[in-house]
């Protein structure tokens, strides 16, 4: 079985995200990058599937991103992924999900695939689009936000739970399929040291756009960032006070609805 896992290099969840001086992106100095946390569930699920199916199953990581992505690719290899394709091209700086999906579709088709795992969204731009666009480009079904994944014994279809508001949808999908993973699907493993050592020797095939047969970055679904804005939020805790507790609580409820917009 040919298993593809997609990964993305993103800033750590704890990183201080500040707008850069030119106002056209974030400051990358002092920012630590990691594998997109949701992609890790995908890697884990891919590895478990390989362990379950056995035979000549293989897990290949595909990552589109800057040169520095090598580090996160190695992390995936250390977890047990067999090999990796790294799509790296200066023309792919700040790509839209549509561009990336088109490039990924090409690379994945070249690799061959039975099942594709990825995270439900990148924790950087939080778009949650690439996997569904990719499904469309590859003309395969998609299951987003998977919390349970099982493969039928005859390997023909996957049975999944997909997280929706207030519950799960149970979905049956024929293979090949792309599955985006939600928290709770599994607990990703901690790479063992022999795994880390072996990862240093595993192959990462670096491909640029030309290698994939593109003359330039695909132009579909383009958009432009007009402006980056900081989140308007004071650092201090707003202490809600009133003479009567009832009034303070009423004020709190109002703030939660009108200011914090969480109600």
């Amino acid at each position: 079985m040919k298993i593809i896992v997609l990964l993305k290099r993103v800033p750590d969840t704890e990183a201080k995200i500040l707008i850069n001086q030119d106002g056209n992106g974030i400051r990358e100095d002092g920012v630590k990058f990691i594998i997109n946390t949701y992609d890790e569930y995908g890697i884990e699920e891919g590895l478990r599937l390989k362990e379950k199916v056995g035979g000549d199953s293989k897990v290949t990581a595909v990552c589109a991103g800057p040169e520095e992505s090598t580090e996160v690719i190695r992390t995936a290899l250390a977890m047990g992924v067999d090999d990796a394709v790294h799509i790296c091209d200066p023309a792919l700086a700040k790509p839209s999900p549509f561009t990336i999906a088109e490039v990924l579709a090409k690379a994945i088709s070249e690799e061959g695939f039975d099942i594709i795992f990825c995270g439900k969204q990148g924790i950087d731009d939080d778009m949650a689009q690439t996997q569904s666009i990719l499904a469309e480009k590859l003309d395969i079904p998609q299951v987003n936000n998977a919390t349970v994944f099982e493969l039928a014994d005859d390997l023909s279809k996957a049975v999944l739970n997909r997280r929706i508001e207030g519950g799960d949808e149970k979905v049956e999908a024929s293979l090949p399929v792309i599955i985006s993973c939600e928290k709770g699907l599994n607990d990703p493993r901690y790479a063992s040291l022999p795994g880390i050592m072996k990862a240093k020797k595993k192959e990462i095939r670096v491909k640029n756009l030309a290698d994939l047969g593109f003359n330039e970055a695909p132009s579909s679904g383009r958009s432009r960032v007009l402006k980056w804005l900081p989140m308007p939020k004071g650092g201090e805790c707003k202490m809600v006070e009133a003479e009567e507790t009832v009034d303070a609580v009423k004020e709190l409820a109002r703030l939660l609805r009108e200011e914090a917009k969480v109600v």
């Binding site: 432009r224 007009l226 980056w228």
Partner: peptide, 8 residues
């Protein structure tokens, strides 16, 4: 952060 996007 927020971004403001416009289609091309």
């Amino acid at each position: 952060l927020f971004v403001e996007l416009t289609p091309e």
